[in-house]
Simulated assay, not measured.
Amino acid sequence: MFSSKKDPNNVKLAKLATLIAHNVHISGDLEFSEGLRMDGQVTGNVTGRPGEETLLVVSDQGAIRGNVSAYDVIINGCVTGDVTVAHFVELQSNARVTGNIFYQKLRMDIGATVEGKLTKFDSQPTHVPSLPSPPEYGIDLAAN
């Protein structure tokens, strides 16, 4: 019934060492290691430390206005900017992404929306490409 084998198609377990609470708004770029749960808002790029198997979780209350780059990403909130994921991205039912998504493996639930291109890497990238600043869409993150 239960298997002890790890499923290579899913997010690797990582310790969510950092929490950005729902009432926190950060302006500026953010780099994290291990895992980050985002319930608040960031205006700036959010990047997992290069070379680490980082995990970013954007909850249904979370919002990022900037580019995102990490090893694994789970989105259930809003991201306005490009998303680059070295391993696995999961778009849950409340996910709203306005930007392109670059991924190796993807799972998308019913209800999730993407306004941009989905581009699959043929194999794990040796480096994460640098992405331009996110476009201005006139979205007021404080209203969410």
Results as ranks from 00 to 15, higher is better:
111 G>M: 04
91 L>N: 05
103 Y>N: 04
70 A>P: 02
96 R>N: 12
68 V>Y: 06
73 V>W: 03
49 R>D: 08
113 T>H: 10
24 V>Y: 04
63 A>T: 07
67 N>S: 15
91 L>E: 08
111 G>D: 03
101 I>V: 15
51 G>F: 00
101 I>F: 07
35 G>K: 08
39 D>S: 09
66 G>Y: 01
136 E>W: 03
21 A>V: 04
68 V>H: 06
46 V>Y: 01
36 L>E: 00
39 D>R: 02
134 P>H: 06
122 D>K: 13
53 E>V: 08
89 V>Q: 04
21 A>Q: 09
71 Y>A: 14
83 V>P: 13
29 D>N: 15
141 L>T: 12
44 G>Y: 00
54 T>V: 09
130 S>I: 10
17 A>I: 03
17 A>E: 13
69 S>I: 09
2 F>W: 06
132 P>H: 10
62 G>R: 02
41 Q>G: 04
38 M>S: 00
22 H>T: 14
50 P>N: 10
61 Q>Y: 09
123 S>L: 08
60 D>A: 07
7 D>H: 12
43 T>S: 14
30 L>M: 03
111 G>N: 04
80 T>S: 08
71 Y>F: 15
10 N>A: 12
92 Q>G: 02
130 S>T: 14
55 L>K: 11
132 P>Y: 07
42 V>Q: 00
71 Y>W: 14
29 D>F: 01
11 V>S: 08
14 A>P: 00
43 T>H: 11
106 L>R: 13
129 P>H: 01
123 S>M: 07
41 Q>H: 09
38 M>H: 00
122 D>S: 12
70 A>H: 10
69 S>H: 07
72 D>C: 11
13 L>Q: 10
115 E>C: 05
24 V>F: 03
55 L>T: 15
